[in-house]
């Protein structure tokens, strides 16, 4: 049951994220990426299998095995992924802000510069 809820939740987040990423405005794309990163983080987290009430905090008296604790490794991976996801979002937002003033619009599908402006 928990598995079904988690999988379908990740699916909904992915679908929403993809749809927003296909929009033409920077802000919408950033929102889409945020949804996608939720989905990806949950997905990686789920790869260690999910447990209820089995915190990966060692307790005296409980043998250090997977019978008593959930898998800590995906948690460590996801923890840094969450923080880095924030850093990337911040970077994209900064770029979209500059782009909006540089071009007067917040679209993200500009035509390329004309050939003579290519760096030679």
């Amino acid at each position: 049951m928990i598995e079904l809820l988690l999988s379908s939740g990740i699916g909904v987040l992915t679908a929403g994220g993809v749809w927003l990423c296909l929009r033409r405005r920077t802000f919408d794309v950033v929102l889409g990426l945020t949804l996608l990163s939720y989905a990806v983080n949950l997905f990686i987290f789920a790869m260690g299998r999910v447990r209820v009430g089995a915190l990966p905090i060692l307790r005296p008296g409980a043998a250090p095995t997977l019978e008593h604790y959930t898998d800590p490794l995906p948690q460590a991976l996801v923890l840094t992924a969450i923080v880095i996801g924030f850093a990337m979002t911040a970077l994209l937002l900064a770029l979209s802000l500059k782009g909006r003033f540089a071009r007067g619009e917040d679209t993200c599908d500009d035509a390329p510069p004309p050939p003579e402006e290519y760096p030679r």
């Binding site: 999988s7 909904v12 260690g48 299998r49 898998d71 490794l73």
Partner: peptide, 24 residues
């Protein structure tokens, strides 16, 4: 979305040989 959900469910309902005991 449907694909990711299906893959996730398929993985979650399978056995696993994690390396977690090493860390625990």
């Amino acid at each position: 979305g449907a694909g990711v959900a299906a893959i996730c469910y398929a993985v979650l309902t399978r056995g696993i040989e994690p390396i977690a005991p090493f860390f625990l």
